[in-house]
Every structure is written in C-alpha cells, then in structure tokens.
C-alpha cells in the first residue's frame, strides 16, 4: 500500500511529462503502447474477473474505430465521434454478448474469434465501410477551439484515455459487484449458487471491456487518419491476450505493464530487424516469435503474470529489511 501511494502518482507524473521530451518516433510508440494498454485493461478484467477468454477483442477495437471515423467523415464533430466510439462498441458487445456468453471456455474463445472474422469480412465487403481499402482522410481530432496538430497531442489524449480507463476499472473492482466478480472467475457454479447474477455481470464486464477497446479504437482512427479491415487482424486480439497474461490477469497495473513490456520488446526487435543486412521478412518473424514464446513461457512458468510475481518478491523481501 505504501508503495502504491508513492509509485502511482510518480508513474502518472513521469508518463505525463514524457511526451514533452520524446521525439516523434518515440511518441508514436508511446501512443501505440497507451492504446494497447487501454484494450488490455479490459481483456485483463474479462479474463481475470469474469474468467472468459475473448479472442475477438480486436473486433470491439475496430467497431470503435469505424464508428468514430464514419461520424467524423459525415461532418459530425470529432469529439462526438470519439464519445460515440466506446458507446457503439459497448452496445455491439451487449448485442453479441447475449447469445455468445451462454458459451464458456474454448467455445467462447472460438465464438469471439468467429465474431471478429465475420466482422472483418463484412467490413471488407460493405460499401459504407469502404471495403478492403477502408476509410481514408479522417479529419484530425478537435474539440472546441483545440485541434490535435501533431503526435504530442495524441500522446496526451491517449494518456487521458488510459487514465480514465484505469480509474473506471479501479472503481469497478472496488465496488460490491466487483468483489462478487472475483468469485465468478474462480467458480461460476459457486458464484451462481451464492446468488450472484452471473449472466448479467459477465455481460456487463464484456460491455465494459468493449467500451475500453472502442475508446482506444476511436483515438486510433483520428491518430492514423484511416481505418481498414487490415488494421484489425486476428493477431491483434491474440496480442492483447499476450499482454494481459504477461502482466498478470485481473490486475490493472499488470495490464499496463504487460502492454508496455510487449510493445517495447516488439518495437526494439523491430529496430533490430530493420537494420541493414537483415532479411525483409525479419520484422514479421521476430514479432511473431516474441508473441509466441513470451505467451507460452508465461502461461507455463509464470501463470500469475509479471506484476503479481514482482509483488510477491517485494513482499517477501520487505520483512527482511525491517528486521
């Protein structure tokens, strides 16, 4: 607890100060990292608290991005588009969640994957989503007199979005339903028999995680200026699972640490792969290999993830210090 009281404001201050000193390419990583962390917090909540694996979180990300892009392209204020992104993603999650959440375990995993594949295929064929080319020339984000000119503005926007997501999640976890959710992850049957409305809670968590992904998608579309089916491959959903598992399921900071660790690792390897003399396939190969090896190693050898493991180390050392 003591650690938290110092570390959280410190982390907030440092990350808030960073955009001012980073160069453009570092800022791009900063934005991607923040967006990934927003989605991962939701995945971690869903897996760690509701005990459900979603292989389709990228679909909610995509719904948010397409929603914001379509509204902005049709002349509505970007701020409205950004606000609509999480709402649309959550509404979509509620609609598909009603039938899908009757499934569990690997059935749900495949069903969510199917959902994403269907959505991608539709987005690639429908006219209003721009087919395979997607939606281009999305105006930059603006609100009132402010217009996001450069990467720095999006970095601050991402920071604010992530802070909001983490704050909401913290309050949800601390609430009475949140504590009931803990029981859900360990045993659904036990939770149901103790009178917890399991179905409604699972649906609510799915919608909330979708809203987080949708918000990240909304920021993403203004940041890049275009969205296409290719922006939301199945691999992106797997990537969020890797991040959540690496950091530690069901912990807010775990999701952030996991997203940061994986993003930085992949970016670092990407630099390495793009050095002269490396084969052209190197970036793809290295990132696939990293996702895969990290995922397998963590599931098998560190099933609680990085953050709980570090916490345990710290709490084991502390009594030694006071002695």
């Amino acid at each position: 607890m003591m650690l938290g009281r110092v570390a959280v404001p410190l982390a907030a201050a440092v990350t808030l100060a960073l955009p001012a000193v980073l160069d453009d390419s570092a800022l791009a990583v900063y934005v991607l990292l923040g967006l990934a962390a927003m989605v991962t917090v939701g995945v971690s909540l869903l897996m760690g608290y509701a005990g459900q694996v979603s292989l389709g979180q990228g679909a909610f990300y995509g719904v948010g991005a397409y929603t914001a892009a379509l509204l902005a392209l049709n002349g509505l204020p970007p701020l409205l588009g950004l606000l609509a992104a999480p709402v649309a993603a959550a509404a979509f999650a509620l609609v598909v969640g009603l039938p899908l959440l009757r499934l569990r375990g690997h059935h749900l995993a495949f069903a969510t994957l199917a959902m994403q594949l269907i959505l991608l295929s539709l987005a690639g064929q429908l006219d209003f989503t721009g087919g395979d080319i997607g939606l281009q020339a999305i105006p930059p984000f603006s609100a009132w007199s402010f217009e996001a000119g450069g990467v720095t503005a999006y970095a601050y926007l991402t920071w604010a979005g992530l802070a909001l997501v983490m704050l909401v999640t913290r309050n949800v976890i601390a609430s009475r339903p949140g504590r009931a959710l803990r029981a859900l992850a360990t045993s659904e049957t036990a939770a149901a028999s103790s009178g917890i409305p399991v179905g409604r809670y699972k649906l609510a968590v799915l919608a909330l995680s979708a809203a987080f992904a949708g918000l990240a998608g909304g920021i993403y579309c203004f940041y890049t200026g275009y969205v296409a089916p290719g922006s939301f491959p199945v691999l992106i959903s797997i990537q969020y699972i890797v991040m959540a598992v690496v950091g530690g399921l069901g912990t807010i900071w775990g999701a952030v640490v996991g997203a940061a660790a994986i993003t930085l690792l992949v970016q670092g390897l990407d630099r390495l792969a793009n050095l002269p003399g490396m084969p052209s396939y190197a970036p793809g190969v290295l990132s696939y290999a990293v996702y895969a090896l990290v995922l397998i190693a963590v599931v098998l050898f560190l099933p609680n993830g990085l953050v709980p493991a570090i916490r345990r180390l710290l709490s084991r050392e502390r009594p030694a210090k006071t002695r």
Binding site: V53, L55, G105, H106, A109, L235, I238, I241, V245, G284, V285, L286, Y288, A289, Y291, A292, L293, L295, I296, V299, L300, P303
Partner: peptide, 19 residues
Amino acid sequence: TTPLSSLIVTLGVGVLAYA
C-alpha cells in the same frame, strides 16, 4: 496445466509456427 491454459499455449504454438 489446465485445459484453458493449454488452449492458450496451442495458440502460442500456432503463432510461433508463423515465424
């Protein structure tokens, strides 16, 4: 290893195979 952990591991194997 629980069946769901095993599913995630096989997911990892599939991605590793890509590389």
